Simulated assay, not measured.
Amino acid sequence: MKKIVKFSLVFLLFAVVFAAYTIFFRPHYNGGGVTIFIPKGVGIGRISQTLYQADAIQNPNVFRIAAKLSGYETKLQAGKFVLPPTLNNLQLLRFLNSSRQIEEKVTIPEGSTARQIAGILSRKANVDSTKFIELVFDSSFTAEVKVPANNLEGYLYPETYQMYWDIPPREAALILVRQFFKELPQNAQEKAENLGYSLHEIITLASIIEGEAILPTEHATIAGVYHNRLKKRIRLQADPTIQYIIPDGPRRLLNKDLRIDSPYNTYKYYGLPPGPIKNPGKEAIIAALNPANVPYLYFVAKGDGSHVFSTTLKQHNRAKREFDKIRRHVARQKKAANGG
């Protein structure tokens, strides 16, 4: 009888040890570098199936038992993870509880609009673009982050960021706005006032400069032209402001586009538009605050990224005719290349 009891206890102990090993400690080799994504709000059943389909665990039911017995059932983090090559269930549960998510490289080019940024964030970090845009144009959120405007257009700083996959829209917006204020020159407010403008007006002007300037060496000169036109109360006639209001831009502008009735149409209305049309980089902001002391009132593209600057309308029209010749020449070359 004692031998039977002893044998039963040994067998029970062995069964417990084997069960514990199977549930918690049996390693599983997944090949290494397996990437998984756990959405917010999903339960352990969905997580188990995701891991099983990625060949990260041997048995989803056993993994669920391990999560329940270890207390990790409701503690696993959402996000994107790259799993180490060999983990047992307990190690995997601890790993997914540690928030060691991978970060995505997200590059926002200078001169991007808020809607373009929303698209980039959606593609690169799985940000909900609709909710992001809602935040951008939420005046209460704009006031909360101390932006001197009624929306965040112009204040979403273009830079390369490291962001977690599925980062909340609010957190993404905060990162971009905080970077804007970090990069803003310390004396920007004072310089703006000395020039006779508010900071918001300077950022608006910087966004137009960003839309016009291709060569960094021309930022300050273009800024000087616009400052001169504003002082003389000459309409800015800035093409980027029209690109902002047409629904199918950017494209070559037509005469009818210049007649669109919008406060952003600087061909129709004097002064600056109501707000930024793009999100400018630091160089454009510095240029808006430090315009070159030049006599120019006009400029036109040369076709190579640079511009011809003029002091009189006669000079400007001559430069425009030269550019039109280049444009027609390029069009003929394209037509010939296409067999036209």
Rank of each mutant, 00 (worst) to 15 (best):
F24C: 13
F25H: 15
F25D: 09
R26H: 15
R26I: 06
R26P: 10
P27G: 06
H28C: 10
H28D: 15
Y29Q: 08
Y29I: 13
Y29S: 03
G31N: 13
G31C: 12
G32P: 06
G32L: 10
G32C: 07
G33E: 15
G33R: 15
V34Y: 14
V34A: 14
T35H: 12
T35F: 14
T35I: 11
I36E: 00
I36V: 13
I38G: 03
I38P: 09
P39C: 02
P39D: 01
P39L: 05
K40M: 06
G41N: 02
G41P: 08
G43N: 13
G43R: 01
I44N: 01
I44D: 02
I44S: 05
I44K: 01
G45P: 04
G45Y: 14
I47R: 00
I47Y: 04
I47Q: 01
S48W: 12
T50L: 07
T50F: 13
L51A: 12
L51Y: 10
L51F: 06
Y52T: 14
Y52P: 13
Y52D: 15
Q53P: 15
Q53C: 07
A54L: 11
A54R: 12
D55R: 14
D55H: 09
I57S: 08
I57E: 11
Q58Y: 08
Q58D: 14
Q58C: 07
N59Q: 00
N59C: 02
N61Y: 13
N61V: 05
N61L: 10
N61F: 15
F63H: 05
R64W: 11
I65L: 06
I65D: 08
A67C: 03
A67Y: 08
A67T: 09
A67V: 08
L69A: 12
L69F: 04
L69G: 05
L69K: 00
L69C: 00
S70G: 02
S70I: 01
G71A: 14
Y72W: 04
E73Y: 14
K75R: 15
K75W: 05
L76T: 01
L76Q: 03
A78E: 09
A78W: 10
G79K: 01
G79N: 03
K80D: 08
F81T: 05
F81R: 00
V82A: 02
V82N: 04
L83V: 06
P84E: 04
P85D: 10
P85A: 11
P85G: 01
T86R: 08
T86G: 02
T86N: 07
L87D: 01
N89C: 03
L90F: 12
Q91E: 15
Q91N: 01
Q91H: 04
Q91W: 04
L92A: 11
L93C: 06
R94D: 04
F95E: 09
F95P: 13
L96F: 02
N97H: 12
S98N: 15
S98T: 14
S98G: 14
S99Q: 12
